[in-house]
Design a protein around this nucleic acid. Sequence first.
DNA 1: GAACTCCAGTCCTATAGAGGACTAGAGTTC
DNA 2: GAACTCTAGTCCTCTATAGGACTGGAGTTC
Lengths: 246, 246
Amino acid sequence: MNKSLHLVPPAEPGLSRYASLAQALRARVIAGEWSPGSALPAESQLATEHGVALGTMRRALELLAEQGFIERIHGKGTFVRQGLSGATMLRFFRFDSGTGEVPVSRILQRSRVNAPAAVSRVLGIGTGEPVLRLHRLRLMGGQPRLFEELWLPLDLFEPLAEDDLSAWDDLLYPMFARRVQVHVHRALDDIGFAQLSATQARHLGLPAGHPCAQVQRSAYDLTGRCVELRITRGDAHAFHYTVNIT
Amino acid sequence: MNKSLHLVPPAEPGLSRYASLAQALRARVIAGEWSPGSALPAESQLATEHGVALGTMRRALELLAEQGFIERIHGKGTFVRQGLSGATMLRFFRFDSGTGEVPVSRILQRSRVNAPAAVSRVLGIGTGEPVLRLHRLRLMGGQPRLFEELWLPLDLFEPLAEDDLSAWDDLLYPMFARRVQVHVHRALDDIGFAQLSATQARHLGLPAGHPCAQVQRSAYDLTGRCVELRITRGDAHAFHYTVNIT
DNA sequence: GAACTCCAGTCCTATAGAGGACTAGAGTTC
DNA sequence: GAACTCTAGTCCTCTATAGGACTGGAGTTC
């Protein structure tokens, strides 16, 4: 790519130079110029490349780091952030046996279906578009603890629709990155309260109608596209979360 | 106070100059040199006062702003942050009638008691120390929605132990600041699910044993002292919260 | 081979200075 | 009196430069 393309900050109206610089860099990251986990050029080089002072470039990079796009490591370099690890659901639950270990996963069901209206709305695809639907059980200390329902847009996840299920990992996000190059960059978790249906209850070894905490997650990639809808349910009594108010 | 006291940054071992500057300023804020809501001296003055370059002082102030100690307003000045507003409990509940308005409060009970062990542990006082205990109902659109149990250390809240209850505001934190100079600076909310006791249920117009969301809040002032323990309960079906994962 | 030293590359800290942007109040004009 | 202009005070942006701190690998020593 021609370096002169980046030379002059656009000087957007009402936008400071470092802010538009950050926008430009974000665009280069999203365009895939540097892949997740790899290093950006050195600050000083980026600065001359874009024709600004070092301090201004540092300010722009600071902004991107705050927003979670990049990660800066003293002495090593600046890196495009890797996706989420996937072990993030446990923050909401505490089980007796749960001493920090990653839960074992068991896929109960996998099928191609046409997205119901509610699902397609969240995923940002047309109603009836094909999606991959999964039912998944997560066990800790041998006990079934969480019941999950996943919806994945098929255009991204096609290779995972027919493969050998025993090859699937316990953590999905690293596997998504490896197998279909989908990097989950951020997620929104909607917490609510509900009661277990008969089937859900059976899988969790609880009575039907038992109170459950319900986490509806929508996960997004770097470009802002929603790449996963997941509904997780677990015993309400095991739910626990701490919020810091400032 | 003698300005020369602030002249040289201590150059703590393994601490950058702006970081120890921030510590020094934090100490001055906590010591009450500038009261909540009032303005600090100008950046440039603070810089010369502490004998550092303007940029370094700005970096230190940035740090304090991130931590929520101060607030900077372009063109106006730098201010010691006011306490929390107190309307923070609604973030966890959505009621049909709840269109953003502040809930009306009704104090059901007020008494001086000796702190039970669990309470004194959270408040950081000796077991059996006197505390003020309140039961409080919060109503929206005329309907009782939340039942609250508050524990306040009596040494700070003595003036509120005997006054006219009808003079109490719907929002407590601004009243605490005005009446007893207690500024709630941050809080930790612990969320869980439980079931309503008979009395709680009666006040909320729900059947005993009804599932409820339970928020245990510990609130802290600028110095880090815990100044309030509050347990709020409301219908679990009205509970709702969104977490941003990054 | 293990430990040490050195070194190039990276991000981080600190300084100094000039000008811009925003706020609020005082003064002026009509 | 309402609208406008001016001005002092504040925080914010951008530049330029020098040196420090940290990482990781190459070379050296024993």
